[in-house]
Amino acid sequence: MLRRINGTALIIAALVATLGALAFPVWSYADRSGTGEANLNASSVATQWGPLSATDRDFLVKVRLAGLWELPAGQQAIERAPSEATKAAGDHLVVGHTDLDRRARDVAAKLGVELPNQPTTQQQEWLRELTAASGDEYERKFANILRAAHGKVFGLIGQVRHTTRNTLIRQLASDANQTVLDHITMLEATGLVDFDALAREAASGSTASPSGPSMPRDGQAPLAPVPATPTGDQSFTSRPVPPTVMPMP
């Protein structure tokens, strides 16, 4: 009798263990705390224009901060730069950030996001560095400090434009993309941007090994790529985007 009870108990225990093993994946899937999706949802706020994530709010603040220091930097360039190219870049900074700041403040008011009224400590330091410089040194610092700052925010704009679920933030990201690209173009048109320094700075913060096609060989032309063209006889109504015209310094 005792053996029969022990055998029954073992069978019940085995069944419980089996059911537990089968149920565990379901429980672990349902409890997604700590995952990227859970963190996204936990940091998001519901609005009538779609969820507003922490990244969205950070982007909105960064747009505001950019205007708080780049606009006065642009005004300073108009007043102090020796060359017309740098003055023109300053003009674009002032006009672009005046408009973008207005858009950012409007979006922030609708979404209930508090915006700063002072640049960051680093941004204030950049302004002081520009103020202390003059002549050719001033122009070089202006072109390179502003170009580096715009390049960094350019990546954030692309990320936000790609991932945001909020229509107001998506529109602001589109507007910011055009404004920042215009400023980058004008800063590069001064002919003073140190692209080697930009590349070294980017490489110093990268840990991944570079990938891509093998390096070209001297005296050996690569195989000509096959053109990407549509097939069939469809008709198309759109037209290619005109190539960017780079202003000459």
Rank of each mutant, 00 (worst) to 15 (best):
Q122I: 12
S235M: 08
A104I: 06
A13F: 08
K110V: 13
E201V: 11
R239D: 12
S211A: 03
A14C: 04
V241A: 12
E114D: 14
T35L: 01
A73V: 00
A202N: 13
L68K: 06
H162A: 02
E70D: 00
F195R: 14
D99Y: 02
G212P: 01
G36S: 10
H162F: 15
T164R: 14
E70M: 02
T229V: 11
A208L: 07
A189L: 04
A228F: 15
A23S: 08
H150D: 12
L71P: 08
L168I: 06
Q118T: 10
V94A: 05
P227N: 05
R64M: 07
T55P: 12
P116Y: 15
D175I: 00
E129D: 07
S43F: 03
P230Q: 07
P222L: 08
A85N: 14
A54G: 12
N177P: 01
D233R: 15
A143N: 04
G112P: 07
A73N: 06
P222K: 07
L111G: 13
L68Y: 12
L192S: 03
Q171K: 07
T47R: 08
S44T: 08
T120S: 14
G36A: 13
W27S: 14
I5P: 05
V45A: 14
R32G: 13
L111S: 11
L52V: 00
M1Q: 11
A81T: 09
T179R: 14
T185E: 13
L168P: 06
L22H: 04
G151I: 03
N117V: 09
A189K: 10
A148K: 07
W69S: 05
S28K: 03
T167K: 15
D31G: 12
S53K: 12
L22V: 15
S235G: 11
S33I: 05
V226L: 07
A173F: 05
T229E: 12
I169E: 10
A133M: 10
L187G: 06
E79V: 15
D106R: 02
R102F: 14
R3V: 03
G135T: 01
R217A: 15
Y138R: 01
L52K: 00
A148L: 05
V241R: 10
R103N: 15
N41K: 11
F142N: 00
P116K: 01
V26Y: 08
G50C: 12
A197P: 04
S174K: 09
P82L: 01
V63Q: 05
T164S: 08
L2D: 04
S204C: 00
A228H: 14
T47H: 07
I169Y: 09
V180A: 11
G158M: 02
S83C: 02
A30N: 13
W69R: 07
G232A: 12
A176Y: 02
T120A: 09
L146I: 06
L19R: 06
E125M: 05
P222H: 09
L52Y: 01
